[in-house]
């Protein structure tokens, strides 16, 4: 195993510090309130889940490429399991779904692991999207065929293709940034998570005007603006761990945050359409895996390709 880059240790120590402070605040709030308070309980559940996530992320990042690829491969699996649960797929889709889980997903992550950019960037949108409907059509059930095919394709796009672009960041070759690519993942994840938290905080403090009352009643214009700007500032302040200047880091953070926000709206719309509040119930206080991943899902491929285009030689 390679030594983790020293900056990674700094970053992880910083996150653990922030979480300790958050846990202390959560504990104090709980002690201070005389009766059980749903908001505080939810906050503490979230902090606890963050501990788990940070420990897992930390282990994976220290484990290097194999660790990160395995972790996100498992996230994709859990996300796909949640997504498939909510689809209208039926008997005739059995083999297409089985192929999605047990062939497409492992192959995609294997391609990521061997850094075969030319294939992992088209494997799902070209090969899987054409082959899976063929598998489904062989069963001869044409009822709602287009809907069923589209559901499987979207499930793969969201849960596997997009998520796999997080570990794909490790395969970028950036001059002067060798062996430090795990920090790009840390940067992406921190900016996305901070944006979620800061939007929540700003929304609670100043939130008046709802931005999408039909989709997500808790999202407000004030929360969105405050969260976006402050998360962009956080991203700029983290430029030391990236190959970017502070201004570049701010711009990239802005893109990440915007994609994350609108990605969250899209995922909410899907949940509304299916009539559920959360994607699953795996993580207490956080709903399912997709509820935690939704902002990363939309920002990861865009972040990957922007960095690749402007910074990466390969």
């Amino acid at each position: 195993m390679n030594m983790p880059p020293p900056d990674l240790v700094t970053v992880l120590a910083g996150i653990v510090g922030v979480l300790i402070v958050a846990s202390l605040i959560g504990y104090t709030l709980q002690r201070a309130s005389s009766e059980p308070n749903a908001v505080i309980e939810n906050l503490n559940d979230r902090i606890q889940a963050w501990w788990v996530m940070v420990v897992l992320m930390g282990l994976a990042l220290i484990g290097g490429k194999t660790g990160v690829t395995l972790l996100f491969g498992f996230c994709s699996f859990a996300a796909l399991r949640e997504f498939a649960t909510l689809t209208d797929t039926r008997r005739a889709d059995h083999w297409a779904l089985a192929a999605a889980f047990f062939v497409v997903l492992p192959v995609q992550y294997y391609l990521i692991w061997i850094s075969w950019y030319g294939l992992y960037s088209i494997f799902i949108p070209v090969y899987a999207f054409l082959l899976l409907p063929i598998i489904a059509v062989l069963r001869g059930d044409t009822d709602r065929f287009l809907v069923r095919v589209a559901e499987v394709q979207w499930a793969l796009m969201i849960c596997v293709f997009c998520v796999s672009h997080v570990p794909a960041l490790l395969s970028l070759e950036i001059a002067g940034y060798e062996r430090r690519n795990v920090l790009l993942i840390a940067f992406l994840v921190i900016v996305v998570q901070m944006s979620d938290v800061l939007q929540y905080v700003w929304g609670k403090l100043l939130g008046r005007t709802r931005i999408a009352p039909k989709l997500s009643p808790s999202k407000t214009v004030e929360g969105f603006l405050g969260g976006t700007l402050s998360a962009t500032a956080v991203g700029a302040a983290l430029s030391w761990m990236t190959p970017f200047t502070p201004l570049q880091a701010a711009l990239l953070s802005f893109v990440i945050v915007l994609m994350g926000f609108f990605g969250g709206l899209v995922m909410s719309a899907i949940k509304r359409d299916r009539g559920v509040k959360d994607w699953g119930n795996l993580i207490a206080g956080h709903g399912g895996f997709i509820d935690r991943l939704d902002s990363v899902v939309f920002s990861a491929p865009i972040f990957f390709h922007v960095v690749r285009y402007f910074w990466s030689a390969a």
Partner: peptide, 18 residues
């Protein structure tokens, strides 16, 4: 709930579903 979708009769590969 849902186990019938995981492995319908006659199939031998289970589909992961919650």
């Amino acid at each position: 709930d849902n186990l019938n979708r995981v492995m319908p009769k006659g199939e031998f590969v289970p589909i992961p579903l919650i």
